[in-house]
């Protein structure tokens, strides 16, 4: 798998010759299939959206009523946004996401720099140990992690969600590969000027790595935002829950308010859709890059 940073997903597809003759039939078929499937793929989201703008009393009656009822209302959104829960969940998701990304990118780029550029005894062992980490399936460790976080008295705080997600092994490899490919001239020059390793790392390596750090940051952020299992068991106070946990556990209190539930789902997804629209390229590159590595 040689392409990781080289995917230009946002760029138009390469122009492929031979589109005459058989190409026409092909293009028409392609369009039909693509349009049909993308409509099929959009239906669930559109359905949730339609429901969320329908009155709770109507949506409780089921699908036909929702289809027919076109007295749209934003009641459900107002109810949710006026209540405090969703804001607290946004806060938790945002704070844990940002802090995890910051800490994770810091320690992972540092480790990758050491593995890529610095010579020291035990480097191979360290490398091997970290390679092994790729195989450790995170969620399987939920039980011992809970015990550990309990011993560290971190349960019920954001740190219980943040710290276990800081070691992103795949990010280390993505960074290491990137650093390996960076020309060494700048660093050499800085070294001759007497700059410390930290200085070189900070002012030469990191600035050159901005694109890959951006892509990995976004992927990590999305991963932390969407993580359900860890916060589900370590964050118990409804005020401190992240979006997925809030949606999953506090839904019982909506009773049968179907529209509210769909609105909460839309609100929970919205920040990521916005993130995607802004950082399309980084999201796609990061996902593909880390997937190919993983």
């Amino acid at each position: 798998m040689s392409t990781s940073n080289g995917i230009s997903a946002a760029a138009p597809a390469a122009r492929i010759p031979g589109e005459k003759g058989s190409g026409r039939g092909f293009t028409v078929t392609a369009w039909v299939i693509l349009i049909t499937l993308s409509i099929l793929w959009l239906i669930p989201s559109l359905w949730a959206m339609k429901t969320s703008f329908t009155d709770n009393g109507v949506s409780a009656l089921g699908a036909p009523a929702i289809l027919e009822g076109w007295n749209l209302t934003t009641d459900s959104y107002e109810t949710l946004l006026r209540g405090g829960d969703i804001w607290n969940w946004y806060l938790a998701s945002f704070v844990t996401g940002v802090l995890t990304v910051f800490l994770s990118m810091l320690v992972c780029t540092m480790a990758a720099y050491a593995l890529s550029r610095l010579e020291f005894k035990g480097r191979r062992w360290a490398m091997l140990l970290i390679v092994m980490g790729v195989m450790i399936p995170g969620n399987v460790l939920i039980v011992p992690l809970f015990a550990l976080l309990n011993q560290l008295s971190l349960l019920g705080t954001y740190w219980a969600v943040i710290l276990p997600q800081v070691p992103q092994v795949i990010a280390v490899f993505v960074f290491k590969r990137f650093f390996d490919g960076l020309p060494k001239e700048f660093e050499e020059a800085a070294r001759i000027d007497g700059a410390s390793y930290w200085r070189i790392f900070r002012s030469v390596v990191l600035p050159l790595s901005r694109p890959v750090i951006a892509a990995m940051s976004i992927v990590t952020f999305v991963g932390v935002w969407n993580n359900l299992m860890l916060p589900l068991f370590v964050l118990t106070n409804p005020r401190l829950m992240t979006i997925p946990v809030g949606l999953a556990t506090v839904q019982g209190s909506f009773g049968q308010r179907v529209s509210d539930i769909q609105a909460s789902s839309i609100l929970g997804a919205l920040p990521l859709v916005i993130l995607f629209l802004i950082f399309q390229r980084q999201v796609v590159e990061g996902v593909a890059g880390s997937g190919l590595k993983g």
């Binding site: 009393g57 409780a60 209540g83 909506f254 009773g255």
Partner: peptide, 9 residues
Amino acid sequence: TFAAGRHSP
């Protein structure tokens, strides 16, 4: 029809 049960926030 249906009553809500959301309290604290």
